[in-house]
Write a protein that binds this DNA or RNA. Structure first.
Lengths: 115, 115
DNA sequence: TCGATTACTTGATGAGATACAGTACTCGAC
DNA sequence: GTCGAGTACTGTATCTCATCAAGTAATCGA
């Protein structure tokens, strides 16, 4: 739906979710809902990544061995599942950031008029 | 498949294909295969958008009224279907470029370390 | 106690990109 | 004179990712 700017905005972030989550975890362990809030707040609410999207992302990252998870030992309060980035995750993160920089410049050159 | 850098590269362009095609057509009429070559050459072969993807994109853009098409009058040689951007297409293009710039900066801020 | 917030889960849906296969014409090399 | 490479377009099936929608369950302030 090209004409729907909200739907379009969602698709603009597509493909970057994994890398964004890895970027958050690179600064330290965190749990699902906190990662969600970190991303939401970092964009000033402009580009929220939906909870369902993120929880699916965590599962994918863990399946691929890029993060590992463990339940927090909160004796009271709701349970929290924590995530920690692995060495493989750090390697993929570095590679993806480099790929992003290259792609960003390519799209820029395709879209922005040269003079 | 996060670990597959080719598949990942593809997903980085995802959501921008429409805008990239509109960007090419904004410089003048062109036909399907030529648009494909223009994009492939502009990226130095680093980010080829597959033919099947582009032909699907043309159909979507035409359905949405962002481009119009007509068959070239090649009396000999293979037939070519030409595309021309519409006023609606130009408006969407302008909007999408602005959206791209905003998203680019957000992803940058999420991925690139501040200091 | 009641609603808002925190925190996580699951199933269904849909769009976009690609794989794969196919049709058909042109043109240079051998 | 034909064979392969390149040009040019089409259609179908499949996959991933993002989201919607709905749900479970606990905490906490008014």
């Amino acid at each position: 739906m090209v004409q729907d700017s909200d739907a379009f905005a969602a698709d603009l972030l597509r493909g970057h979710t994994d890398t964004i989550v890895l970027g958050v975890l690179r600064r330290g362990e965190s749990y699902g809902f906190e990662i969600y809030k970190t991303i939401r707040d970092a964009t000033g609410g402009a580009h929220e990544i939906k909870e369902a999207t993120l929880y699916a992302t965590y599962r994918r990252l863990e399946k691929d061995g890029l993060v590992e998870s463990f339940w927090g030992d909160e004796t009271q309060g709701g349970r929290r599942k924590y995530y920690r980035i692995t060495d493989a995750g750090r390697a993929v993160y570095a590679r993806n950031v480099a790929a992003w920089a290259a792609t960003r410049d390519i799209i820029d050159s395709l879209l922005i008029e040269r003079h």
